[in-house]
Design a protein around this nucleic acid. Sequence first.
DNA 1: TATTGTTATACTCTATAACTATA
DNA 2: TATAGTTATAGAGTATAACAATA
Lengths: 164, 164
Amino acid sequence: MASPAVQPPITAPTQCVPRELLESPLFLLGRLGYEVKTEVMDAFEAAGFSAYCYSVLAVLDEGDRETQATIADTLKIDRGQLVGILDELEEHELIERKRDPNDRRRHLVSLTRSGKRQLTGYRRLARRLEDELLGPLGEGERAQLRGLLQRIAGARDTRYVPRP
Amino acid sequence: MASPAVQPPITAPTQCVPRELLESPLFLLGRLGYEVKTEVMDAFEAAGFSAYCYSVLAVLDEGDRETQATIADTLKIDRGQLVGILDELEEHELIERKRDPNDRRRHLVSLTRSGKRQLTGYRRLARRLEDELLGPLGEGERAQLRGLLQRIAGARDTRYVPRP
DNA sequence: TATTGTTATACTCTATAACTATA
DNA sequence: TATAGTTATAGAGTATAACAATA
């Protein structure tokens, strides 16, 4: 005994994220952040290296002769995780690990010549990804976004506050 | 034979994320997005439910009588993942699952009375979290951030474009 | 005993694939 | 055969903990 009135299709023609979620910067930040992160990782992976390689090389390019613990701390990644990344970088001779003669427990990690060159390539890739993912935003808007995110990040953790 | 000149502490006094990463909106978006996501999840978890419960309830509050596939699609989560979330919500009688008499494969999911009430609570929690995590930003700035993120999200996926 | 780097292990979230029941 | 929901499984990515070497 079917109901006499034929029911119209109940599946919504276009599913759309609820307005209250779309209007939550937190929801958008979390969702976009996750998507961005995975896409960036995939892109770097496709280019041949782990996504963290760029970050690590960037750290080494600024501060000289860091120890592994410092690098891991700076990037908020696990020390154990960093080992694998450094292994990869060392295999390709982008970095060098040398025992610290003053404290033989430590490794002094430094950028090699070809590491510096590779860093340039990573920068180009990063720029390309930014253009891709932040495409709809103009220069001024990107700066605006950067400023806002920096404010949030800086308030959460001092290591996100640029040194004077 | 220690070197005569005592080496100053080589560990940088303050580790700081490299400037070039801090100036990349992509890096900040990815990092903050991840942190925000996990913190929000933890907060909801601490409040007793999975973090997705709020999203699901919000969907149900807008569109009526959705099927599970529609909900999963809308929120870009896996159908299999959704099952567990709905189980949890149903256990606490926040939603109801009824077989669609027109197609007995489908479940018509709807919000219960106490589900609607719970949604209000979730909204309060979401507001609190937003205040917490976006604290350093004023009202205008939050709106700015929301607008920018909406632009990015909308360009990537039409389901992030608010319906007119 | 404490710390550095390393290795091994477990856990969380997500993605994929097999299964059932209906169509 | 194809689809909706369910269940089971495997896969990243990350976090925790044990380990050897050095201090």
